[in-house]
């Protein structure tokens, strides 16, 4: 198995840098071979740029993949959108000769070439497949006695034909990764529904997009949980920043802490909430942070 290069994307480094820090701390602590992927750009975002123009979407995705090919490392994504774009583009370029020639025609102007010799990983499926819940449990220094609403996010699982991670209707692997940290994954209605952010909906039609987020937040609130855990910074932003936007529109306050899985894992590995940037969310819940720090 190849080593990894960390693909940051846009939202994590430029809006939720705590997730970047949490990822780096966790990877180092668990001794996973992963280096920075220097000079990468936007993946580019699947719902936006894939919708606008396939040729430029493929060209930029190909360049990001090639940067990692040149280091002979697989790409590690920590965002469902980046995973969707890079995994789909990688597969298209490996299998479609005509599109690969066209894309390499553009890449030649930068002196690069897509060769098709690496894989694209997502940190959730990577941790589950390569380490598994039992091995991760051995790293836990602070078991988390909390109730968690797991939100998979659409593009981690779908299209299932391409992702190959099993049924999208009732997946369990992410829940297992949460429970091996001592937490309880709480079931709730419409658990696998979309957060509403993808497809360019949040960027252009925000009020429509927030209707989907509000629906999920209300279902989750009713389930009685301590936090929502996601695998994607765009879902993270939709639930965190979105809670404040929903409050401004409707007056409803959910006050639910939102954590990326790497931040939850970081807590279990013994890092402080502040080191993991959990205090940098729009929604900050001191009770939640106290509960973690005081060992419940």
């Amino acid at each position: 198995m190849k080593g990894l290069s960390l693909f940051l994307g846009c939202v994590i480094p430029n809006r939720y840098p705590g997730i970047e820090m949490a990822t780096k701390l966790c990877l180092a602590k668990m001794d996973i071979d992963c280096v920075e992927l220097k000079g990468a750009s936007c993946c580019p975002a699947p719902g936006l740029f894939r919708s606008f123009d396939k040729a430029s979407w493929l060209a930029l995705a190909a360049r990001n993949i090639v940067l990692s090919e040149e280091m002979d490392r697989d790409i590690l994504t920590i965002c469902n959108g980046c995973f969707s774009t890079l995994a789909d583009a990688n597969s298209i370029l490996k299998n479609d000769t005509i599109l690969r020639e066209q894309t390499n025609g553009h890449l030649a102007k930068t002196g690069r070439e897509f060769k098709g010799n690496i894989d694209i990983r997502h940190i959730i499926e990577y941790l589950y497949t390569e380490m598994g819940p039992d091995e991760i449990r051995n790293h836990v220094e602070r078991p988390l006695n909390i109730r968690v609403a797991v939100h998979y996010g659409c593009h981690l699982l779908k299209p299932s034909r391409e992702r190959g991670l099993g049924s999208f209707e009732r997946p369990e692997f992410f829940d297992e990764l949460v429970e091996c940290l001592g937490a309880t994954s709480v079931n709730y209605p419409d658990k696998n529904e979309c957060c509403g952010a993808g497809g360019g909906v949040r960027s252009a039609l925000k009020e429509d997009s927030l209707k989907l987020a509000k629906h999920k937040l209300s279902r989750i609130k009713d389930a009685g949980i301590d936090c929502i855990v996601n695998a994607c910074p765009f879902c993270h932003m939709q639930f965190d920043t979105g809670q404040e936007e929903i409050r401004q529109i409707t007056g409803i306050e959910y006050n639910i802490p939102i954590l990326h899985y790497t931040q939850l894992l970081g807590l279990a590995l013994g890092f402080s909430p502040r080191m993991l940037g959990i205090n940098l969310n729009v929604i900050t819940d001191n009770q939640f942070i106290e509960k973690i720090e005081n060992g419940q």
Partner: peptide
């Protein structure tokens, strides 16, 4: 443009 591309 209201489709979130959730793939359901």
């Amino acid at each position: 443009w209201m489709c979130t591309t959730c793939y359901n």
